[in-house]
């Protein structure tokens, strides 16, 4: 049982990353909490990771609403290519 609960720093930080997207399972969260008891580094990683998530969220908000359009020139080129392709 104890062996099942023991995880490495690599596994702990992977769970921490997963939980940033709210996709860590309940059992994973338990293992992570237990890991924190003996590991200050991963605890620090988690604190900083949350901060990074905040930055990503801001970036996401700025990017997600942007719609990308092809320029008229690019469209003309494409039209020409399609015409040539069909001939």
């Amino acid at each position: 049982m104890l062996k099942k609960l023991h995880i490495t720093c690599n596994e702990a930080t992977t769970i921490c990353d997963k939980s940033q997207y709210k996709e860590a399972s309940f059992f994973e969260k338990i293992k992570l909490t237990l890991h924190f008891l003996g590991c200050k580094i991963c605890k620090l990683y988690t604190r900083q990771n949350k901060r990074m998530s905040g930055l990503y969220k801001d970036k996401s908000a700025a990017c997600k609403n942007k719609i990308n359009y092809l320029s008229q020139t690019d469209k003309e080129v494409l039209k020409k290519q399609i015409k040539e392709f069909k001939v």
């Binding site: 719609i67 990308n68 359009y69 092809l70 690019d74 469209k75 494409l78 039209k79 290519q81 399609i82």
Partner: peptide, 28 residues
């Protein structure tokens, strides 16, 4: 096709590969 779908497909590609030139190639 170009008038109706080029922008939609281009945006679809940019959102995924985040590269405008590459997206143009993929649409082409």
């Amino acid at each position: 096709w170009i008038d109706n779908y080029a922008d939609y497909l281009f945006n679809y590609a940019v959102v995924r590969v985040n590269d405008s030139d590459l997206s143009k190639d993929l649409v082409q």
